[in-house]
Amino acid sequence: MQTGLYISSVGHGALIIAAMIGGIFSTPESPPPDVTEVTLITAAELDAFAAIKPDVLTDVTPLSPTPPPVLLDLPEPDLPEPPPELAVLDAPEIPDAVPMPPPPPPSPAPRIAPTPAPAPPEDTRPADVPQEATRPNPEAESVTPEDPKEAEAPEEAATEIVPEGPKLAPTTSARPVSRPTRARPDPEETPDPLSTAINQAVEEATRPAPQPVGPPLTRGEEDALRVSVQRCWNVGSLSSEATRTVVVVAVEMGRDAKPIQSSIRLVGSEGGSDAAVNQAFEAARRAIIRCGLQGYGLPEEKYAHWQEIEMTFNPERMRIR
């Protein structure tokens, strides 16, 4: 019972001490007031300020409405030296451009040796391990006498080629029987649809398939591809005619979903001259290559579906009319 009294007394005492020392109940300090420094001046100085007139225009003089025209001595006009400066237009100084040879192809890998190795002598094969030339062994000079042999007759020969095998083939044969004449089908007769369908289906079914095929690309995957190419299809530098030209470009893709540059080809076009078609194709090719540098992110399990892509570039909505 007294324990509680002790605890309560100690607690209250601690609270009172904290309030007195810590300033829990004191109001927070207010921010320091703004102070403006002033300078005290004397009454004489104040009178001196008041004596200065305000800067106000009280004496306004109207200006003349329009100044009289003044004839100025203009400097001599900077006329061009007739022949040298402007003769450019008369006599073209720049002749027709001279076509230049094509640039050199990129150099191959650097050679290891600055000069080519001398050609090996004839009939000498390079070996992994160099070998010295063999020298005649003087001890091997002694000739070992061979065993005496009996005299042999030369192989028998004939004056004409005679087959060695048994004569199985007949010397004569009957003429082959001529092909029996077939009854010509009646041109009015239609082929049997059942057999035709079966033949076609079997023919297609037996055609070798390149690889197994997964499900086709989803609409979202196709849209992602389309958007990827669109980001790089810049028609801003195309001629007006090229922006009225539709081109169909085929491209083969690697499994890494990167376009194979050498496979990009024009497969069709609509509208525009040959030059315009070429410009439109170049822009399309740049788009395919540029945005395909890192791959188009297509699902590899569906490779058979996007191994070949035909893209139709239609600038109708982009063209400058």
Binding site: E204, P210, W233, G236, A304, E310, M311, T312, P315
Partner: peptide, 22 residues
Amino acid sequence: LSAPANAQSPGPLRIEITEGVI
């Protein structure tokens, strides 16, 4: 017979690009 044949030779993927950048 023809269904599996079509599945194994889908032909080129065809898409149309109508929006580019200027």
